[in-house]
Amino acid sequence: MSAPAAASVAAEQTSTRAIAVAAGGGKARRVKDRLTSPWATAAAIVIAVIWTIPTFGLLVSSFRTPEEIRTNGWWNIFVSPSFTLENYADVLTIQGASSANLGSYFVNSLVIAIPAALFPIILATMAAYAFAWIKFRGSAPLFVLIFALQIVPLQMALIPLLQIFSEVLGISGTFPAVWIAHTIFGLPLCIFLLHNFISEIPAEVIEAARVDGANHTQIFFRIIIPLSLPALASIGIFQFLWVWNDLLVALVFSGGTADVAPLTQRLAELVGNFGRNTERLPAAAFISLIVPLIVFFSLQRYFVRGLLAGSTKG
């Protein structure tokens, strides 16, 4: 069997499984009728409401005047409705000599987050493949070490890394510095999560390809990548969110200038000295929320398929 044939077998296997789930739909509905009770539905709704109320309060607050925010609770909007877009206008249009407007920071955030989400995912997939399917001495201890690296507080890595960036590579305060830093900090968790997924790919598929003479590079591109795409997408979303919401790494490695610094830094500044302009924050926070939500919605379907293989063997 050739490598492509192996891939198609693999694809078949997953699709069989997907079909099993899909075909189970009919049955599942019947099962569900018995599994879910009104109580469960009620509980789900309660959780959903509780989890949404805080954010909803923020959304309401973003449309209230500073005076109202300070003197009474946001729920009063239902008693005495009021509405202003001034906070959003403030946040979006304010410019200064020290820092450009929000748009420029928005671009910076994208330019930081896209590579900083892709790099670690790709390198982690390669490493995860090696740990899962290439037998070598010391594989297990090395994997445990990488897993354990998750705990190194990144605060402690800032100084040595910045030292290397500024004295050896001369790239501190540039986008590549921020990308590399995020890549390093994201790798341990990405390798850990992807290893869980990749090691669950049926051994027969990979064995079949090997028998056909495929080497590791071929197996990686023809089998591993296509089969793990959903997992890559879902872990990619998480990595993207972490990078998008990060402030600390950006502060140190972007040098804090409007040329490189991300949205989060601008948001922190918008609050102003003495937290003088707190009323701007709800609006600003909502603006920064838009991109993560778009990413989540557009890739959400991968969450369902994404970690499918990883769960059955347990």
Binding site: W51, P54, T55, L58, W244, N245, L267, L281, A285, L289
Partner: peptide, 8 residues
């Protein structure tokens, strides 16, 4: 909430 920064 996952999509909201800690400051937010």
């Amino acid at each position: 909430p996952m999509a909201i920064s800690f400051v937010g």
